[in-house]
């Protein structure tokens, strides 16, 4: 079986500053986790995302052919996460074109750039 592990957190709480010993230690724990996951053969792919300020959301409504595109992350509490794709694209427009092509009849699709790959 394959599983997805989704990480939620409060992005307004700042992490340690790059260049400080705290940052080294913090990154060390992540690299250790990644290495353990890879060595044990469990790793498929993973990444840290850019903050939600970089997100763009497409919203689809039943019966409406074109989605609406808005600035900002997915925020509808009565919808639940149903899947994800990780794609490579030249720019946001290309990524949005693929998001637009998803055969989802209704719902929200958040597009966010990847920051650091695991």
């Amino acid at each position: 079986m394959e599983f997805v592990i989704l990480i939620y957190g409060d992005e307004s709480i700042p992490g340690p500053t790059p260049g400080t010993p705290e940052f080294q230690e913090f990154m060390g724990t992540w690299m250790g986790y990644n290495a353990a996951l890879k060595e044990s053969g469990h790793f498929v792919s993973g990444a840290g995302l850019q903050p939600t300020a970089t997100a763009t959301t497409l919203r689809r409504t039943f019966g409406v052919p074109e989605p609406t595109i808005t600035d900002g992350p997915f925020a509808e509490t009565k919808e639940q996460l149903g899947g994800f794709y990780m794609i490579t694209a030249e720019n946001l427009d290309e990524a949005l074109d693929w998001a637009r092509k998803l055969p989802v009849p209704a719902g929200s699709i958040e597009v966010r750039p990847v920051g650091v790959s695991a």
Partner: peptide, 22 residues
Amino acid sequence: VRAKKKIRLAGIPLSVPADLSE
């Protein structure tokens, strides 16, 4: 500042799409 940061980080391109009307 926020808008320009989004343009940079989200990769919004300086391009002209094939269908301009929308």
